[in-house]
Amino acid sequence: MDIEMTPAEKIKLNQLYNASLMKFDHATCEAVAVSQSIGTQMAEAHIGHSTYIFARLCNHAISMISGVPRSRWVRADFEQWDFGSAAGHSRAILEGYLLFIYIVETPSSQEEWSTKINVMFLNDCVRRIKMMTNIGAAADFDGMEQQAEELRGRLNSNPWFQALSSQVKKRCLSGDNLMIPSRDEMLARAGWDKETFYAYWDLLSQYAHVLPISFFRMEPNGRGTGLENDTDKGYLATMLDMCADTLVSATDLMTEAFPDTATARQGLKSKFDPGPRSNRPIPPQTKRKKRR
């Protein structure tokens, strides 16, 4: 059983959760406002593709903050204190950030960019073929196998790709690789400690799926039941804080790419739609016609 907290420790944990929720709310507001402020702009290909990944990070952040207790984003007459409500979205934000910094990075050459995007296209193509095959809809991916071979041909004729190790090339050509670097290499680029990341990753995976850690230590009226409890509250506070830092880093990179969006970062007062009423843009007021 978990060690029971003292009243003072419970108060401190409660304050920690509230502060983490506010921090994540702040980060989500600014990220969404920046994403919506980009609009239609001319940009380099790698920047353009990164905006799509950034938008997905924002969507996961919105879903996460809409599902955690005490959020101002939703109205509810109860609180669901279940870490599972945030685990999947937290994991998506963390892994999505690694993909984001991989794509937003300025390539050294056109050959490098061509390799990166074609590896990703091939991964997508192969996954779609497998998915359609598994559900018995082989006719729906007609032409995808030919597209996969065309992508392999582009990679094999690319000098930058040919300079990679044989093992990396093999995995890329099979469609297994989404990114050319390994996850550990991307963690180093992100400045994240590998051991810490995998500790959180394993915990999040247990709750994103229904695995033993998520239910073996459930307690009556407590941990794992959805009722307010110290364990789930602590896990939620930790991931709200970590994901807030991740969103801020992604938003910083996005505003570097689109400097004119920096003014959209107004903290909890950022404007975007849909969202909480206080964050919606104020429609322009029409002037009343003066009576003669």
Rank of each mutant, 00 (worst) to 15 (best):
D2S: 12
M5W: 09
P7M: 07
A8K: 02
A8F: 04
E9F: 03
E9C: 05
I11S: 05
L13A: 10
Q15L: 11
N18H: 14
L21P: 11
M22S: 08
M22I: 12
H26G: 04
C29E: 01
A31I: 09
V32S: 04
V32C: 03
V34W: 01
S35H: 01
S35Y: 03
Q36W: 05
S37R: 00
T40M: 08
M42Y: 13
E44A: 13
H46E: 14
I47G: 00
G48S: 10
H49C: 08
S50F: 05
S50H: 01
Y52C: 08
Y52N: 10
Y52R: 05
C58Q: 02
C58H: 06
C58E: 07
N59G: 13
N59E: 09
A61E: 03
S63F: 03
M64Y: 07
S66K: 13
S66M: 06
G67C: 06
G67D: 14
V68T: 03
P69R: 09
V74L: 04
A76Y: 14
D77M: 14
E79P: 00
E79F: 04
Q80V: 15
W81N: 06
F83W: 03
S85A: 08
A92G: 07
Y97T: 05
F100R: 01
F100D: 00
Y102V: 00
V104D: 01
T106R: 06
S108E: 11
Q110T: 13
Q110C: 10
Q110R: 13
W113S: 03
W113F: 07
S114M: 15
K116H: 15
K116S: 11
I117W: 09
V119K: 03
F121G: 06
V126G: 04
R127S: 14
M131N: 13
T133W: 00
N134T: 09
I135F: 07
A138Y: 02
G143P: 00
G143A: 04
A148K: 07
E149W: 08
G153L: 12
R154Q: 09
N156G: 08
S157H: 07
N158S: 12
F161D: 13
F161H: 13
S165V: 11
C172I: 06
D176L: 09
N177I: 01
I180R: 00
I180S: 03
R183T: 04
E185K: 08
M186V: 03
A188F: 06
R189Y: 11
R189D: 11
G191P: 02
G191T: 10
Y200P: 01
W201M: 12
W201E: 12
A208D: 02
V210Y: 02
V210H: 01
L211N: 11
F216W: 01
F216M: 11
R217Q: 15
R217M: 15
M218G: 05
M218N: 09
R223C: 03
R223N: 12
K233Y: 06
A237G: 01
M239L: 09
M239G: 03
L240I: 10
M242H: 12
C243F: 00
D245I: 02
S249P: 04
A257Y: 02
T261E: 02
T261C: 08
T263K: 08
L268T: 14
K269Q: 08
S270I: 05
S270C: 06
K271W: 09
K271T: 15
P274D: 15
R277C: 05
R280D: 09
P284W: 12
P284M: 12
R288G: 09
K289G: 10
K289R: 12
